[in-house]
């Protein structure tokens, strides 16, 4: 019986093409897109920390940053003023969250956004500033 046969090499080329395209597709889709926002966001976070460390305190203490972390009472008193100050330092399209040993101010950080982070050690603990684009 004479059966029509597919040439074996065509079967091979189909299998090989699928294999190679699969690997190439893995490269194309598997590597995440480069993150172009991170250096800028990190710079914004570091700048916020530096500006807060340079501001004169409203009541007492050496700097504004030290004043807000010095005690729970001071933090509660300064919470709103700190939020306003940080909002004024950063551009309008940047949201922020400042975590101190006594509490946090700002917007909760959403998941899966690129953030910039700066951590400042103070005599009362670490202050962590996270910023991201709205």
């Amino acid at each position: 019986m004479r059966r029509a046969q597919l040439p074996l090499s065509l079967v091979e080329v189909a299998v090989g093409t699928t294999l190679i395209l699969g690997v190439a597709l893995g490269f194309a889709l598997g590597t995440p897109a480069p993150d172009r926002q991170e250096p800028q966001l990190d710079a914004y976070a570091a700048d916020t920390a530096a500006v807060l460390a340079n501001d004169a305190p409203r009541h007492d203490g050496a700097t504004r940053l030290q004043e807000v972390v010095s005690s729970q009472g001071a933090f509660d008193r300064e919470r709103d003023a700190l939020e306003r100050r940080v909002a004024r330092i950063l551009p309008a399209n940047v949201l922020f969250r400042v975590e101190t040993p006594h509490g946090t101010v700002g917007t909760p950080t959403p998941r899966r956004v690129t953030t910039g982070v700066a951590t400042v050690p103070t005599g009362y603990g670490r202050v962590r500033i996270t910023v991201w684009y709205a």
Partner: peptide, 30 residues
């Protein structure tokens, strides 16, 4: 058929390597 298969496979390999190269260059972080 063997000749055609080899030519096809070579072209696809070339395309695949080029794609991978572009993807890696684009992923350069800085």
């Amino acid at each position: 058929a063997l000749g055609v298969a080899l030519v096809l496979l070579t072209i696809v390999t070339g395309l695949g390597v080029a794609m991978a190269d572009t993807a890696i260059a684009g992923a350069d972080r800085t």
